[in-house]
Design a protein around this nucleic acid. Sequence first.
DNA 1: GAAACGTGGCG
DNA 2: TCGCCAAGTTT
Length: 363
Amino acid sequence: MREPIDPLTLLQWYDRHARIMPWRVSPGDRCAGVRPDPYRIWMSEVMLQQTTVAAVKEYFVRFTRRWPSVTDLAAAKDADVMGEWAGLGYYARARNLLKCARVVADEYDGIFPDTHDELLKLPGIGPYTAAAVSSIAYDLPETVLDGNVERVMSRLYDVHTPLPLSKPELMTLAQALTPQERAGDYAQAVMDLGATICTPKNPACGLCPWRDPCKGRLAGTHVELPKKVPKKKKPIRLGIAYIARRVDGAYLLETRPDKGLLGGMLGWPGSEWIEGVPVEAEPMKAQWKVIEGEARHTFTHFHLRLIVKTALVPMDRSPDTGEFMPLEEFRPSDLPTVMRKAFDLATGGSKTTSKDAPRSRAK
DNA sequence: GAAACGTGGCG
DNA sequence: TCGCCAAGTTT
C-alpha cells in the first residue's frame, strides 16, 4: 500500500470537475460563502431516488418555480402535486413529499432540521436522504451511501461480497473516508465520481483521481464489482383500460387509492392486472369498442399488456366508477406514463408528452 | 430480509 | 427485444 486513499485528492478533482445542476451550489461559490437552500436540496434528493439526473432536472425546475418554498408546497393541493409529479415514477415519493412539507411547515416553523436523526423521522426520508440533506445543505460530516458510493467503495477496497449483504461493510469503509471539513462537497464528489468516472460499465480509470490506490483496479476485478444477487424474471400481466369520452368532451377518470401501484394518481378505470385473462370491468354501460393493438409498459416487477376500449357516451348517463373530468381541466401530462400510453393508443398515436400546455382555464 | 414501488435510456 | 441501471423508502 504505497499510497493512502485520500479524500482531499477527490475534493481537488471535484473543484475542477463538479457537474453543474439546478440545485447545486458549485464548489467555488460554496467557498465564497454561498449556502444551499435545504428545501431545494431535499427536493432534489427525493426526486433523485432511483432516478437519473437527466430525468429530474426538468421536474426540479418546474416544482421549485411553482412552489419556491416549503410553506408554498405545504399549501398546495394534493392533486396539483400528483399531477406535476406524473411521469417521474415512484409516486409514493410525491405523496410523502407533500406530507413532509406539511410537517416541516407546521411543526418545524418551515425550517428543515439539520441532524440525521431528526431528518430520518420525516416521511420519505430514509438513511440516504437524511445523510444527503445533513451533509450537502448543512455541511455536517454524515456519510451518504447510494448506488454510486456502493460501487466506488466496492472497487476501491475490492469488496467481493454481493449487495445488499455488503452494505454494512461498505458503509464502514465510506464513513472512514468521510472528512470533517467540506462534508457536503465530499458527498457530492463521491457521487459525481461514480456517475462520470467509476461507472457501472467501461469505467474511465485513466481519469480517476483515486486510480493509483484503487485495490479493485490493482486486482483487475473492478469491472465486475459490485457483485449483486441475481434478479427475478418479470412475469407478464394483462389488463383492460376503459376510456369513455362524453359528447361534451369530458373524460371518465378515477383517482387511484393512496396505497399500492400508482397510488394517488389519476387513471382510466379498468380491470385488475393479472397473469391470467382479465375480467371485464366496464365503468358504465356503453358501446365499448376495442382499440387495435395494446399499450405495453414495464413496471418494477412485471410487464403489462393493456387492452384499451373506448366509448362515446351521451350527457344523460352517469358512470358506476370514476367521474367525468371536463375537457378544460384534463391534461394528459397529469397521467402516469402507463395511462398516457393507453390514451395515446386510443387517440390514434399522437404523442402527449409535454407539460407545457396550461389548463385552458383554472378554477 | 424480501417484496413492492415507475420510468427512460442504453448496449 | 431484453436486461441492467439510476443520488432509495416503506412495509
